[in-house]
Amino acid sequence: MGKYLSFSIIAIKHGYKNKGETIARFAFYGIILLVFSSLWNAVGSEKIGLKPRDMIWYLAMTEWIVLSYPLIHTAIQEDIRTGNVAYLLTRPIPYIWVKFFEGMGTLLLRMLILAFAGFGFAYFITGGLPTNPLGLLLYFPVGIFASMVVTLYQSIIGLFSFWLQDATPIYWIFSKCNFILGGMMLPLDIYPEWLQKIAMLTPFSSFLYLPVKACLELDASLLLEALIKLTVWAVIGLIAMQLIYLRGVKKLNVNGG
């Protein structure tokens, strides 16, 4: 395990030295919250069943995950496009786990920095903490766990580059599903019942809606449901990642030979 964590540590160091990207995300986070807070103030969030202040906090909490998870599929694509994967495949350590643990390092660094940005902006815009401040505290470990599972699925998307060279279309579908079925901007409660049922059957609602809603409302049973579902999706993801990887390395055509 130590050698895998070394990849997370070096990714943290690398991310720290490459500050430009994090600063851009920091600014983007603030703009999103500012725009949507104006929107909710104009439209009114009572119909959704949340207080206006909690609605902004809901968005800040979902965006914390969405803006923090690394785009591992682009890293894998780049390795295949440049042929760098050749270096990484000859090491006595599975390539996909290397990418996953590097992704974990990047994720944790971003979550730390963006927590200040997002929650700071939300506090500034709403003028206070969410209705249940304890829920926000609870959300730190829960949100990190949910982000780790999203990162796992990001790695799986990246593996499709072994066949397609470019996994961007798959990522595009994934991100849009996160957007809609995950309830990134709007809690699923606002959707028609049939769509809510579909969303709850997918992993996306466990990535964003369930953990955020459970923490905001400080609902123990909803939190338990979120944690169980996340664990189940994590196990499914781990098995899928390993199986797809084993097939993918046999299929791989490395550029430049």
């Binding site: 050698k3 070394s6 070096i10 690398h14 490459n18 760098n84 050749a86 990484l88």
Partner: peptide
């Protein structure tokens, strides 16, 4: 592999060496 790199771009090469020591 010429024109490809296993070194971390924004970090000193020594950091990659330390990482490889763990890998191997």
């Amino acid at each position: 592999f010429g024109q490809r790199s296993q070194l971390w771009y924004h970090l000193p090469a020594g950091d990659t060496f330390d990482l490889l020591a763990r890998v191997y």
